[in-house]
Write a protein that binds this DNA or RNA. Structure first.
Lengths: 359, 359
DNA sequence: TTGTAAGCGTTATCAA
DNA sequence: TTGATAACGCTTACAA
């Protein structure tokens, strides 16, 4: 590969001049510039980005640390990050599948000197701690932290708000007896959603009843089991709020099996708005989490931070969520933003087919 | 940030010795090693990867150039790439949304000196040409090329084979009169699928009839229009093969609207196996393209190439596809690999919920 | 077993 | 407006 030296030699100038032409950092005589440009073209010279960043100590690259890449959720986060990166002129260096803190550390180390900052997501306590420590090496934006963190910037999903909104929705539908299937203990999303549920009930003057709360673990089968338990209740609730859509789908299966009509006999609500939420019968009323916006915001936050260095304490944002009213709670009307065209044409169909080879 | 020089000074050794301890490239006395390790720990020293790769001219990074990140398809490709990268000890530098050849070029240039090779996907004629040119700068594996390319390694989806398999399946179901909705002209996927259709018919001794072939453009609405046209035919075919699932969904809509029962009166088949193919009514018989495998293979091919330099001409692989028999062609049996559990529990549900925050 | 010093391909600081 | 040359942080001959 040709280097800047080859170009300089061919153009009969010094490397400094070539650099100036390439970057426009200082005035260069037109005749000289021309000679240099010709030499660049002749060699098809591409500056060596790594060498460049060694002197400038700027990489124009963002490191992305994710626990996984599986599923629509992470896909959307990455798309948001990519969008933000493009808007701000950054590249993205991705490292994923950090099952444990050690692997995460390794991924981060490999980025040393190759990124200007980090967008990270940590699934659990250990990894969250590791990422917090990384903020001594890089500027970091931490997505949806497992536990509250002060040392680095964070963007948290409004789990509490979403749960409150959902319970209020159920109350507004006239349901007074509302049960919940909770997520795994120690999971921040799960706990915030649970907290929102209890808060909204109390605010409405209703005491949350232990007999209506079932421990799940975010899997469909745990939702199914909870559904059977609820079906067996002597006085079942009028509505059940599942801490995620997977469990809500499990509830639907159980109720269908038991011949309990949804939403006629019991209303079912979820959280996350996973793609199949639109396809189950009845279509699931849930809380939409906008992963794309999460990624986009993270990048915006990070690049702002990178551009004008640390100024004040790291910001802590909250990503709003949105109630999506479908049919599983007995909707009379559709949420505006989730409006569905006629026939079998689902909301995401175009995006999906664009995503295939057939585009 | 601490450098190798700081560490060397603190440990009372030369930078060369620190490097040797870090990389294990030469024997170091135990006592020395200990002092160095302590200094490394004290400074929490992380070697500067960019500087390192400047001397070694190896980056342990793969550049990924994609036209888009949208949808399940690209998500799966990236996941496959990521998996392959992890297995082989590479990082991935992603650049996407290359609407045109210029943007693609820019993305590639930014990778100069930062990657050991490239996995690229080009949607059209121009970008494919650009990528072919890139192979003078990097080792390149080109996914699903728009047109045949010799200069760089490629992995193509077995569109032809898939179409042949589908038509044979329809023939085996007893359908003799088989129509097709084709994809856009000039699109390689579309043309290969169309070619497969005609080939399979001829092989069965059936002359493809122009009156049964409808030009589509991969959108649902073009499928819908074709469906209406087919419904209006005096002698409609017994089956229709759409060149992608989006158009097949459009066909289903049209037939439903016209009161034509599927698969009772007419069979419908698609290609791609997009997620909603499982959810439409009747569930769509289609050809599955394994995007994960595509990404994984590409990385394997590329890293093999990187490790033991150019040896012989660039390889050209074909990614097999798989027929997925569901209900839209009157299935009596289910394809083994697409077996569906009872109730509303869809195949991908676990993966999807793992992809959400709720994990 | 260790140290010295020459790169790697840029940019940046001085002088000229 | 240009050219020498010293960084940047590391690896790697070559010597000791």
């Amino acid at each position: 590969m040709a280097t800047i030296r080859d170009v300089a030699e061919a153009a009969g100038v010094s490397v400094a001049t070539v650099s100036r032409v390439l970057n426009g950092t200082a005035p260069v005589a037109d005749s000289t510039r021309l000679r240099v440009e010709q030499a660049v073209a002749r060699f098809d010279f591409w500056p060596h980005a790594a060498a460049r960043s060694l002197t400038t100590s700027r990489t124009h690259t963002l490191g992305i640390l994710l626990p996984d890449l599986h599923g629509q959720f992470f896909s959307e986060i990455i798309r948001g990050i990519d969008q933000g990166a493009r808007e701000t002129g950054f590249q993205i260096l991705v490292s994923s599948s950090h099952a444990d803190a050690g692997a995460l550390m390794l991924g981060a180390r490999a980025m040393s000197g190759r990124v200007d900052g980090l967008v990270a997501m940590a699934p659990d306590r250990d990894t969250t701690t590791v990422i917090a420590r990384l903020s001594r090496k890089f500027p970091v934006v931490l997505l949806n932290p497992h536990h509250p963190i002060e040392v680095c910037a964070t963007i948290a999903v409004a789990n509490f708000d979403g749960a409150v909104a959902m319970v209020k929705h159920l109350l507004a539908r006239g349901h007074r007896s509302i049960g919940m299937v909770t997520g795994p203990l120690g999971n921040m999303d799960a706990e915030e959603r649970w907290r929102g549920y209890r808060h909204a009930l109390k605010e409405a003057g209703i005491a949350p009843q232990a007999r209506l709360q079932f421990q799940g673990d975010f899997t469909e089968s745990s939702g199914f089991r909870a559904g059977l338990a609820i079906a067996a209740l002597s006085r079942p609730p009028a509505a059940v709020f599942a801490a995620n859509d997977g469990m809500a789908v499990g509830l639907l299966s159980a109720f269908r099996q038991q011949g309990i009509e949804v939403p006629g006999r019991i209303a079912v609500a979820g959280f996350d708005d996973i793609p199949i939420a639109e396809f189950v019968v009845p279509r699931l009323t849930t809380v939409h989490v906008d992963a794309f916006a999460l990624g986009l915001r993270a990048v915006k936050m990070l690049t702002a931070f990178i551009r004008r260095s640390p100024a004040g304490p790291p910001p802590h944002q909250k990503l709003p969520v949105r109630l999506v009213v479908r049919q599983s709670c007995g909707a009379k009307r559709e949420s505006v933003s989730a409006k569905r065209p006629a026939a079998v044409r689902p909301r995401r169909a175009d995006a999906l087919s664009r995503g295939g080879f057939s585009s």
